[in-house]
Simulated assay, not measured.
Amino acid sequence: MKHYVEEVGARVKVDEGIQVIEKLLLACYFHPGISTKELARRTFLPIPVAAAIKKELIREGALEQKNGVHCTKEANRWVERRCGYRGIDKALYLKLMEANINEAVRLPEMKVILEGLAEEFARRPQVNVQLDQSKCTPETSLRRAILCLKHHSLVGKKILCVGDDDLVNVSLGMLLQQLFPAMEVPQAQIDVVELDERFIRHIHEIADRAQLPIRCFPWDLRNPLPSEWHAQYDCFFTDPPYTLQGMSLFVSRGITALKQKKGLPVFLSFAHKSPDFMLAMNREFVRMGLTVHAAHQHFNQYEGAEMIANRSQMIILETTAVTDAQVKDAFCDALYTGEVKRTLRTYRCMQCGQEVFVGLQGEVATIEELKNQGCPGCKNDTFLMVEKRHLPPK
Rank of each mutant, 00 (worst) to 15 (best):
G33F: 11
L225F: 05
K388L: 11
V358I: 13
D89A: 06
V251G: 02
P393R: 06
Q351H: 14
Y347R: 02
L264K: 05
P125Y: 07
L195E: 05
E387Y: 06
D132I: 00
W78G: 01
T337E: 15
T291W: 01
I203Q: 01
V105L: 13
M174D: 02
R348A: 13
R77D: 15
R348D: 05
F44H: 13
F30W: 05
R201M: 10
L154E: 06
D381E: 13
P125I: 04
S35A: 12
K54C: 11
L290I: 03
K55H: 15
E60H: 14
D208H: 00
I58M: 14
P218N: 00
R348W: 07
C28P: 04
N310P: 03
A294D: 10
S134F: 03
V170T: 13
S269V: 11
V69F: 03
C136G: 04
V185K: 12
R144M: 09
D276Q: 10
V192F: 05
V20R: 15
E74F: 03
F299S: 00
T238L: 01
A305H: 03
M350W: 05
C349K: 01
D333S: 12
V364L: 02
R124E: 14
V170L: 00
A99W: 09
Q354F: 08
N310G: 04
N380S: 14
R348V: 12
V170P: 06
L92C: 07
L107A: 12
H230A: 12
Y347Q: 03
Q232G: 00
G254K: 09
F267Y: 12
K111V: 13
F237V: 05
L131Q: 08
R345D: 04
E109H: 15
E16D: 12
A10M: 09
A257G: 00
P125D: 03
C352D: 09
H31V: 09
P32K: 11
A182S: 11
N223H: 14
K150D: 10
A321T: 07
T323H: 01
L290P: 08
L221E: 02
E339C: 06
I21R: 03
V155L: 02
Q177N: 12
A330Q: 13
V69P: 01
F237E: 01
A182F: 06
P186E: 07
G9F: 13
L92P: 08
M1N: 09
K259D: 09
G87C: 06
G362L: 05
S227N: 08
E22G: 13
H31M: 14
Y29S: 06
Q326F: 15
G353F: 13
R198Q: 06
L142K: 00
T320L: 03
E228G: 00
W229H: 08
